[in-house]
Design a protein around this nucleic acid. Structure first.
Lengths: 229, 229
DNA sequence: AATGAAGGTGTAATATATACACTAACAAAA
DNA sequence: TTTTGTTAGTGTATATATTACACCTTCATT
């Protein structure tokens, strides 16, 4: 089968920068390429968009095919389309960034042949194509979002301690935060629900677990309307 | 000539949501479609990406061809690619949003056959394709950016009064601002240069003109690094 | 029983944001 | 030339938000 068009079409792919938090380190999910070009190199999971699926559906499909990761928060990062970014033909990719909760989705390889693994987001191996640029853009976006939204919940287990939450912010923002001020602020939003459960197995006082109240968050976002200059 | 590929390729276009400020109203630049589909309807300026040009270059080229507008601030908004958004074939578009200074670039039609005109950004005519969605996304983005960056300068003449600047913010944000607080804040950034020139021809006290100091802005942006939670 | 390790809590100082009203300057009209 | 209309330009007091900072509690382990 061959497809013909009266004028040239670039190829269209999607790629996903999937982040997760593991042992207090920010990780990114990469796959090893099994095909030329860049065979053997690591790359962001992704692939060609089918004609009958939306861009986001393509991203979710490729991600699950290549890494087994599914049901995640996906946001479009943007299109990357410099001529020459793929040595075969003109390929434009729409990049997504995604966050997985490593507690719910333990890091594991994909279900198909290619290998998948987590790497330090700040120190990835040499990446195929322009994926290093895409990853850098995704990291910027992640840090930017995190300053404005309680995105952390997407990374954390359903119930978490305030210290876990603080560590997460510290890891992604790359800066230490004051414990008391952090708690004061995060609790003031009213989007955390105190549980009557406590951390287990620690050799110190057990910390109370909290849960993210998504409805309260939605209400908070909807009510934000006042900005100065 | 015919182009053949071993698997199907969607078509790729770029579209631009170009905003300008005119008489205190936020305007968007639209073109009248001369071809089917949606012949006669208004649409965002844009068109097909050539294989040898970058996405941004395609956006700039189409914009100049269709509207005569050139040399502007362009930022990628994202890709829009729902199947069915174009009745002909699968077309994915990369949308850009752009700002023109109507003082420097007077609103005028394009150099080619199609008509171009400015419309109220908040009340555009019925738009072709999914351009209403793209426009709505661009407006959101514009307002969001404006809260964080002195983007206003892209809209204003090279020299402007503080009242013009304030009107601009009020127009885009859709809310009145306090004059004294506005001045205090905008001057505190140190990115405005007082000129020894004054507004002319007004039937009231002449206002001092200011200029945007782009270097100071760059320094300011570079130095911003502290964020809380 | 002692130790180690994290959990949990409040206040004072500073910085930022907001609310608010009058005089000055100029052109146009009377 | 006086009056009128219109916008320019300015400061302070209050409220809110942010920051810096240290100790006792709780629990498991030794």
């Amino acid at each position: 089968m061959e497809y013909r068009y009266p004028y040239p079409h670039p190829a269209l792919t999607v790629d996903c920068a999937v982040f997760g938090l593991d042992e207090g380190r920010l990780k990114v999910l990469l796959v090893e390429r099994g095909e030329e070009p860049y065979k053997g190199a690591w790359a962001l999971p992704g692939g060609f968009v089918r004609l009958d699926e939306s861009l986001e559906a393509a991203a979710l499909r490729e991600l699950e095919e290549e890494t087994g990761v599914r049901e995640l928060y996906l946001e479009q990062l943007g299109a990357f389309g410099e001529p020459g970014r793929d040595p075969r033909e003109r390929v434009v990719t729409v990049a997504y960034f995604a966050i997985v909760n490593l507690f719910d989705h333990p890091a594991r390889g994909g279900s198909d042949a290619s290998a998948a693994a987590w790497f330090e987001a700040d120190a990835p191996p040499r990446l195929a194509f322009d994926h290093a640029d895409i990853l850098a853009a995704a990291l910027d976006r992640l840090r930017g979002k995190l300053r404005r939204e309680p995105l952390a919940f997407e990374f954390l287990p359903r119930a978490f301690t305030l210290t876990q939450l603080q560590r997460f912010y510290e890891t992604v923002l790359g800066a230490p935060l004051d414990k008391r001020n952090f708690r004061k602020k995060v609790l003031s939003y009213g989007i955390l629900e105190e549980l009557d459960e406590f951390e287990a197995g620690a050799a110190h006082r057990a910390a109370r677990l909290h849960r993210f109240d998504r409805d309260a968050w939605e209400r908070l976002r909807a009510s934000e309307g006042s900005y100065s200059v």
